[in-house]
Design a protein around this nucleic acid. Structure first.
Length: 644
RNA sequence: GCCACCCUAGCUCAGCUGGUAGAGCGGCUGAUUCGUAAUCAGCAGGUCGCCGGUUCAAUCCCGGCGGGUGGCUCCA
């Protein structure tokens, strides 16, 4: 047998017998490396540690430190899950079982659904198999043979049929489990140290609801129990911040069964926050050259036929309302209304850009299963604006929109964000409206705008809306979750459908470029994100109650009321807690309501004419004259500070 | 919409294999007047989501409907 040359990452080379396995080389380097090894990278391709090396190659041994490792490890854990399911329920058919962002899942087809009790049983069985240190073995099978061998396994046949080459790889785990899989995997189950099955869900085969619905088991896995624990704690933390929970506890909003799902009621405390969000946005509109408009909530169905929504958006609209003269449609979008305003008079190139902004409430029929608190609702208000401009103005408009989006994020305390440009498929599928020239022009404008603003934007091909390319901004919240927020989208379709035009300097009519943009996205959703980002402890300028006066005994009640009157006069949202309760209790309640400032007043303060300031985050701040406190809090409010 | 699970006092939840319900918090009343995260006592409060079925008897078992949670799908 001839020797092959293996080059390691440090540049050193070794000559080894062909068919040597990466794990052998790792052992040769150090037993500890062999022990820590998860997989190998051979000429840039991921390899099992036990897959023989056939020719000269560069070799990297992957350990838990390498980013690819966790995915491989989770993928292997998914196989372990499937093997356990097969041992317990041999009649089960296997779907797919990939690693995902925070773990893995495996899809199964079986006549009876899994129960939460099954999850426990399966987990136990997984540990049993884990203890056997079963190897993950790579098997090569011919396509023909495979199809014959698995003729009774319908999902496997489909996968082999669609994806397999002439020879495909399978991985076995113990006597029963074998799966069509590209790999690679960890050497054996003893490497798996920490995992947990999390939930059961229905999922359609290949994600298509026309297909059979399978049973999906979600789980997660980490290299150490400590990491798993940390992850589960983070999930707990996210639960504590759940805006639905906080919305109830802080009395911000509700959804009323009698009124219908997906429809939001803003309570007084949520209402004041909404008012502030709206004011901020309207002020920004006016400061940035937008015009404010107001449009109706319904319009004749004919409008939606002209816009095309009655056709392609029908599934997401409330059904039309029959009146005596015509059918009316609750609006799912603001665009056609803004277009009507644009088209209501003749426009000169000198009038452009026309920027029409509105906080427009729209109603969309979302399937009941997709509704989710404030995040996905059936009635919501978009901070929607449409810009109609000349081609030579496009780039500046896009830059301004993106700058506006970034300023919005900063104003609410979001420091990190991602951007994504969604482009078309080059016209290959024919599913996109407009011509190549338009797409290239618009996509170029988006790209140049991100370069100019030094925004790192990922380009995602074939993800655009059918009517034009777009850029989406995703924020990263306090606990690292990403939320899709702002969007800037070109629209090649509506200007054409409505015959929009302006008279250019050549005296001829031209079609304006139309840009949709929403920065909060939806006020409801943005509110929900804010609740979770701040865990309900809103910045002082947004806090529904900014200060609460806490008299220690009834003797200071009147003094306390006087303080509150002065706060009110200074424009500070405040209350007094006059209950005959201990100050400890009042503080506890105020803390739980996340009120930024508690002004404790006892005999001492009354005599000196001061207030003892307690901050919700920094506790006791000592006594000071009320005027000083008012000056301090005014500074925070005026600067819209996100810390205090 | 589909799959699984859930719905018991205002809130959070307990209630064994069917025998018409409990706690804590909250509310009300009274006592207490207290210095930086829960003072004590008493009282009130529920056709156990709704409709139907099985049963001598249903919060519990079965079916339908409504609402919610986690997913699938979609997106603001």
């Amino acid at each position: 047998m001839s020797n092959i040359q293996i080059t390691l990452p440090d540049g050193s080379t070794q000559s080894v017998a062909a068919e040597t396995r990466p794990i052998d080389i790792a052992k040769g380097i150090s037993p500890r490396l062999a022990d820590a090894a998860i997989a190998a990278k051979v000429n840039g391709e991921l390899f099992d540690l036990t897959r023989p090396l056939e020719k000269d190659a560069t070799l990297q041994i992957l350990t838990a430190k390498d980013p690819e490792s966790l995915e491989i490890y989770r993928h292997s854990t998914a196989h372990l899950l499937a093997a356990a399911v097969l041992e317990l329920y041999p009649e089960t058919q296997l779907g797919i079982g990939p690693p995902i962002e925070n773990g893995f899942y495996y899809d199964f087809d079986r006549p009876t659904p899994f129960t939460p009790d099954d999850l426990e049983k399966i987990e136990k069985k997984m540990w049993e198999i884990q203890a056997r240190a079963l190897p993950y073995e790579r098997v090569l099978t011919k396509k023909e043979e495979g199809l014959k061998k698995y003729s009774e396994a319908w999902m496997k046949c489909q996968l082999i049929d669609e994806r397999a080459g002439e020879i495909f790889t399978e991985y076995t785990l113990g006597p029963k489990f074998i799966d069509f899989c590209r790999g690679p995997h960890i050497p054996d189950t003893s490497k798996i140290k920490a995992f947990k099955l999390l939930s059961i869900a229905g999922a359609y085969w290949k994600g298509d609801e026309k297909n059979k619905q399978l049973q999906r088991i979600y789980g997660t896995a980490f290299f150490t129990p400590k990491d798993l624990d940390a992850y589960l704690k983070q999930v707990e933390e996210a639960k504590k911040r759940d805006h639905r929970k906080l919305g109830k506890e802080l009395d911000l909003f509700s959804i009323q069964e009698l009124a219908g799902p997906g429809l939001i009621f803003f309570h007084p405390k949520g209402g004041i926050i909404r008012k502030l969000l709206e004011d901020w946005m309207r002020d920004q509109y006016l400061a940035r050259g937008y015009s404010l408009v107001y449009t109706p909530h319904v319009a004749k169905l004919d409008l939606w036929k002209t816009s095309g929504h009655a056709n392609f958006y029908a599934a997401n609209m409330f059904t039309p309302i029959e009146l005596d003269d015509a059918e009316y449609q609750l609006k799912p979008m603001n665009c056609p209304f803004h277009i009507l305003i644009y088209a209501d008079r003749q426009r000169s190139y000198r009038d452009l850009p026309v920027r029409l902004g509105e906080l427009g409430t729209v109603y969309r029929y979302e399937r009941s299963g997709t509704l989710n608190g404030l995040f996905r609702v059936r009635g919501f208000t978009q901070d929607d604006a449409h810009i109609f401009c000349r081609p030579d103005q496009v780039e500046e408009e896009v830059v301004n929109c993106l700058q506006f989006a970034i300023d919005t994020l900063a104003a609410y305390g979001f420091e990190k964000y991602d951007a994504e440009i969604s482009t078309w498929d080059g016209g290959a599928s024919g599913k996109y409206d407009g011509v190549a020239e338009q797409w290239e022009f618009a996509e170029g404008a988006l790209r140049r705008a991100t370069e100019k603003l030094k925004i790192n934007a990922k380009v995602v091909p074939d993800e655009a809306a059918f009517y034009g390319p777009k850029i989406d901004v995703k924020l990263v919240d306090a606990i690292g979750r990403k939320w899709q927020l702002s969007t800037v989208q070109f629209d090649f379709t509506l200007p054409r459908r409505f015959g929009l035009e302006y008279i250019a300097d050549d005296g001829k009519a031209h079609q304006p470029i139309m840009v949709h943009r929403a920065l909060y996205g939806s006020i409801e959703r943005f509110f929900g994100i804010l609740i979770e980002h701040y865990a309900g402890a809103f910045p002082v300028w947004l806090a529904p109650i900014q200060a609460i006066v806490l008299p220690i005994t009834d003797r200071q009640a009147e003094y306390g009321r006087g303080i509150q009157k002065q706060l009110e006069a200074a424009g500070i949202r405040s209350t007094v807690d006059e209950r005959s309760e201990k100050v400890n209790l009042k503080i506890r309640d105020a803390q739980m309501q996340k009120i930024p400032y508690m002004l404790v007043v006892g005999d001492r303060e009354q005599e000196s004419g001061q207030v003892a300031v307690r901050n919700r985050k920094h506790a006791d701040q000592g006594a000071k004259p009320l005027a000083d406190f008012i000056a301090d809090i005014h500074k925070l409010i005026e600067s819209k500070a996100v810390t205090e």
